[in-house]
Design a protein around this nucleic acid. Structure first.
Lengths: 386, 386
DNA sequence: TTGTAAGCGTTATCAC
DNA sequence: GTGATAACGCTTACAA
C-alpha cells in the first residue's frame, strides 16, 4: 500500500483548503478547470518489456496437447465424451498457454448474436437513468448477457448513430429511451428478429413494446393535491413539452386546472427548461411576476433540484411538488413532496420482457404503464398566502 | 399520443395519494412491494405475424446485385476503386434488403478486438460510479468504441466472473474498480496484449496503470480543519478499512490525531459500515457514548448521507465532514463540508490512458493521483460544545 | 472416445 | 475495376 507523503498534504492545504469561496455541488467539467494541472503523476517501478505474443487458439492448444482441435473444443465446452486423462492434459495446456475461447468466433458460428444487449439512454449520470441501468443489468446478468450502455444526450441523430453501432455489433436486443421522434428506421431490423423495447417514452411510427410511467395520472394527482390546499396560481416548469413524458405532465396540469374551473395563465407556464440554468431563470421570472404563483409543479428530477435551489435561497413561501423522487428529498430544510416511481423496476421489467421476446414470446407488442405514487412530505403543505 | 383515462387518475388518488405515512427516499426494492400489482398492462393494437427471415449477408447482396462478394465489401467499406455505377447498384440492393454488416465477423477477421471496452464497477446506481462511467463513455465514443458496464457489487468472485466474461467477448481494453485483493490472474491476459487500467484503487500483485484519488491527503486536510476548530473527540465512520480507499482515509485520521498529540479513542472508530443501516447504527452508538464525539468524519458519499440522516433527526450539534461531494450537499439545512473530487474526470483520464495503450503507448505503468479539494460549507464550522 | 471437413460472414491477398 | 480464394477461430455434422 502506497501513500502520498506529507508534501502532498501541505499542497492540498495551501492550494485548496483555504479556498472556500466555492459553494454548491459542481458535478462535471467546471470542477477541474482550476485543479487539473495539480494532477500528480508517479511513474511505477518496472515494466515487462517483451510482448507481441499472439493469442493462443484452440489449434495451438490442440498441437501442444497432441490432440485434435475438436477435442479441445469438447474440453472447453465441457462436453461429456472425453476421457479424464485427455481432459486433464488439455486443461493443463490451456492453463499454461493462457488460452481463452474467442466468443466472437463462437457467436459468429452459433447464431447471429453476441450475448450482449444494448441500452440507449440520455445520460448515465442522471440518477433516473443510472437506476434504470441498474435494473436492466441485474436481469441481464441472470441471463448471462452483458450490457452495453450508450448515451444519446437527447440528440436524435446521436441516438440513431448509437443504435446503429449497437446493431452492427449484433446485440441480442435493444432497450431504448427514445430521443428522436420517428423510429420507423427500426422496422426492418425488428423484422429481421432483433427485439426492441422502448422505455419511458413510446415510439412513434413503430409498433413495439414499451414500458412507460403513468405521467399523466401521477401529475394529475399532484395537481389535485395542490388545488385542495387552496392553490389557484400554480406555476409549471417543464422541459420539452413535445416529448411524451413532458406532454403527459403538462396535459395533466391543464386538465386539472380546467376541471377545477380555473383558466390557464400563460405567464405561469414555463417550457423548455431543459437544463438547470434555464429552470432557475424560469423561477426568477415567476417570482418577479406582479402576482407570483403560490405553488410550483416541476416535471422532472433535474428541474426540481434547480427550482428548489432558487426557492430555498429566497424568502418566498411557495409550495412545491416535483415529478421523480430523488435522494435527500426528505432531508432538505423543507422536505419535498414528489411524484415517485421506481426506475430500477422499470429497467427490470423492460429487460425481462426483452428476454421473453428473445426466448420466442410472439405475443402482440405490449404497453406497460407503471404506477406512480404521491409522497407527501412538507413542501406541498405550504398554504397560499392571502 | 395516448393518455391514460380518468379512471387511472382516481385509482392513483385512492391507492396512493392519501397514503402519507411513508417518508424518506426509497430507491429500490422496498418501493414496489406495495405497488407492483397495480401495474397496468395495455395490449397494443396489432402485430406483424410473419417473421423468421434470415439476415442478409454480403453474399446475398452480391447475388442480388450481380456482382462479387468482394465488390460489396468494397462498397460497404467505402474503398475507392469502385465504379460509380456499381456502387450505386450495390447500395440500392443494400437498402432494399436491409443489409447491415456483421461486425462480429469483421472483427474476427481483422484483429482480436470488438471495438468495445469493458468497465467493471461496484454499482452503477451510486452517483460516484455513474459519473465515472459518464466520463469513460464520452472518451470511448470519441474513439468509436462502445462501453460495456458491469457491476461487481463489491464481490471479488463476481468481479472475476465479469472480467472473464468481458475478456471472452474480446473487449479491446479493461477498466476496473477492483473489489478483490489479488489480481495476479490478469497478468497472462495483459501479456497477451489487453490493456488494463485500475480506477480508484490500486491493484495488488500486478504492475499496471492506475488512476487514484488522493484519499490520504484529502482526508488529512479535512481532519486538520476539524482539529483547528477545536475538535478533539472526532468520530470516524467508514466502510471496509482494508480496501485501499478506506485504508488511506483511516490512516489520515490516525496520523492527524497523532500529529496533534491526541490519542486514538477506540470507541470513536466505526468500521464496516458498508450500507446505510450499519452507518446509521454506528452514529446512534456514537451518540449514546458517555462522551460522544463533537465531530464526525465519514469516508464516502453513501455513508455521509446515512450519517446526516441521523444527525439531522436529533438535536445534537455535531460537526461533520464527508469524503465525496454529492448533489444537494449545499442545500441541506446545514450545508455539508466535503472532500470533493471529480469522478467524471477520473473516468475520462482512465479512458484516455487506455486508448493511448491501445494505440501502442509502451511507457511504464503509471500511477496518477487526482487531487481533492476541501469544500467548506457549514457543517464543519460547528464548534465543540464545552 | 476421438477426429475430419465444412461453414459462420467478413476481410486480405493476389490474380484477372 | 473486379473477382476467386484463403483465412479469422470457432462449432456442427458426420465419420472413424
Amino acid at each position: 500500500m502506497t501513500f502520498i507523503g506529507r508534501d502532498t498534504i501541505s499542497n492540498c492545504l495551501e492550494d485548496y483548503a483555504v479556498n472556500s469561496e466555492h459553494k454548491g455541488f459542481r458535478p462535471l467539467e467546471d470542477f477541474m478547470a482550476d485543479a487539473e494541472d495539480n494532477t500528480q503523476s508517479i511513474a511505477a517501478d518496472q515494466h515487462d518489456a517483451e510482448s507481441g505474443k499472439l493469442r493462443p487458439t484452440m489449434q495451438d492448444v490442440a498441437e501442444a496437447a497432441g490432440v485434435s482441435l475438436k477435442t479441445v473444443s469438447r474440453v472447453v465446452n465441457k462436453e461429456p465424451s472425453v476421457t479424464e486423462a485427455t481432459r486433464k492434459r488439455v486443461e493443463d495446456v490451456i492453463k499454461s498457454l493462457g488460452f481463452r475461447r474467442n466468443d466472437l468466433a463462437r457467436n459468429l458460428r452459433q447464431g447471429q448474436t453476441s450475448s450482449t444487449i444494448g441500452l440507449v439512454i440520455e445520460d448515465i449520470a442522471n440518477p433516473f437513468y443510472s437506476q434504470l441501468a441498474h435494473g436492466v443489468e441485474s436481469v441481464a446478468r441472470r441471463y448471462n448477457h452483458m450490457l452495453i450502455i450508450s448515451n444519446s444526450g437527447e440528440d436524435p441523430l446521436r441516438e440513431r448513430e448509437q443504435v446503429n453501432a449497437l446493431l452492427l455489433r449484433r446485440v441480442s436486443g435493444l432497450l431504448i429511451v427514445p430521443a428522436g421522434a420517428d423510429h420507423s428506421y427500426l422496422t426492418s431490423e425488428m423484422r429481421l428478429g432483433t427485439p426492441v423495447i422502448f422505455l419511458d417514452r413510446p415510439p412513434e411510427n413503430l409498433n413495439v413494446d414499451a414500458i412507460l410511467l403513468d405521467s399523466y395520472g401521477g401529475s394529475y394527482t399532484a395537481m389535485e393535491h395542490l388545488l385542495r390546499q387552496g392553490h389557484r396560481r400554480i406555476g409549471l416548469i417543464c422541459g420539452d413539452p413535445s416529448v411524451h413524458t413532458g406532454a403527459g405532465r403538462v396535459a395533466a396540469y391543464r386538465r386539472a386546472m380546467t376541471d377545477w374551473g380555473l383558466g390557464l395563465i400563460e405567464d405561469l407556464l414555463c417550457f423548455g427548461c431543459d437544463d438547470a440554468i434555464k429552470a432557475e431563470q424560469a423561477v426568477y421570472r415567476l417570482l418577479a411576476l406582479p402576482q407570483p404563483p403560490t405553488a410550483i409543479f416541476a416535471t422532472s428530477n433535474r428541474i426540481s433540484i434547480a427550482v428548489l435551489r432558487v426557492l430555498f435561497s429566497t424568502t418566498h413561501k411557495i409550495a412545491f411538488i416535483g415529478f421523480d423522487d430523488f435522494e435527500m428529498a426528505d432531508m432538505l430544510p423543507i422536505p419535498v413532496t414528489v411524484i415517485a416511481h421506481n426506475p430500477t423496476e422499470m429497467g427490470r421489467q423492460a429487460a425481462e420482457l426483452l428476454f421473453a421476446r428473445l426466448h420466442g414470446d410472439e405475443s402482440p407488442p405490449q404497453r406497460i404503464v407503471l404506477p406512480t405514487k404521491l409522497i407527501i412530505r412538507s413542501s406541498s403543505e405550504i398554504k397560499p398566502e392571502r
